[in-house]
Design a binder for these strands. Structure first.
Lengths: 148, 148
DNA sequence: TATTGTTATACTCTATAACTATA
DNA sequence: TATAGTTATAGAGTATAACAATA
């Protein structure tokens, strides 16, 4: 029954999030902030609107995340020379430095959650979730590709 | 890479939750309230502590959920005859009535999210997520079995 | 001393609405 | 008139800490 599938999915995600909270806390980052920082590093420089689209949140929510990251000295906003309405967000040196630690921490957390699965099973799971992800209605990101 | 797996899992869960918000809104329920109501119906009567354990949240958070459900007239608290510290929670008639509508709505939401997967693929996904779920550190629920 | 539930409080995450500056 | 970003605000979902009543 699909609703049970939904439950399992949400349960796994809940556990995952909790794990991330614990593992990211020493870095002074929340899961959403860490995710935003990853996207910023990957696509920098990018406008607030585009960051929001990549994160699949409304622009106002992106403001909050970038505020926190900027206050932590991990990213910086600068005017977009091409459009005086826009701001471009990009990582600072400290932001780039945080990337390695974040990756390690995230890998460990995922490693632990998915430990009960064999490499082959993980690959299968990955494939199935990717199908679901690709079926998502398209966001209007500037250049296509992965959103996260 | 496992961290990408984690991303996909969280993305799917995010979409699922958003879907549930929309589909449950007409019933006047939030996803967490709906989940709590389902657990209550399934295991009633049950103590607040046990409800919290089933939901994998702290007792204080269960209080908030039951407050909302009680105010909506869907569940009721009554003293536990066996222990004057405890309260037993159980569904009202209205709560039981809500079950059918909730199930339909949940089934539709799940149906839509998992539409891109074949029946066989859904089964595979179910199996993999179940492995993850079973590996979860055991809660101390009164009678074993599914927690949700 | 431990357990049950609650009051009080706070924080993350995200949203809508209204506003400002620009295009 | 439409777009980019923000201020202001709200609500869901959860948590910790301190407390009262009971065991």
């Amino acid at each position: 029954m699909e609703s049970e599938l939904a439950d399992l999915l949400l349960r796994a995600a809940r556990r995952m999030r909790r794990h991330q909270i614990d593992s990211l806390a020493p870095l002074g980052l929340t899961p959403a902030q860490a995710r935003a920082l990853r996207v910023i590093i990957r696509y920098a420089p990018l406008r607030m609107v585009d960051l929001a689209a990549r994160l699949d949140i409304v622009p106002r929510s992106a403001t909050t995340l970038v505020d926190a990251l900027e206050e932590a000295g991990l990213v910086a906003r600068r005017p977009d020379p091409a459009n005086r309405r826009s701001l471009l967000v990009e990582p600072t040196g400290a932001g780039l430095d945080a990337r390695a630690r974040m990756s390690a921490v995230r890998r460990e957390a995922a490693e632990e959650l998915f430990a009960p699965l064999s490499a082959e099973q993980r690959e299968t799971l990955h494939g199935l979730l990717a199908v679901l992800d690709d079926a998502e209605p398209p966001h209007d990101c500037p250049k296509g590709g992965h959103r996260d």
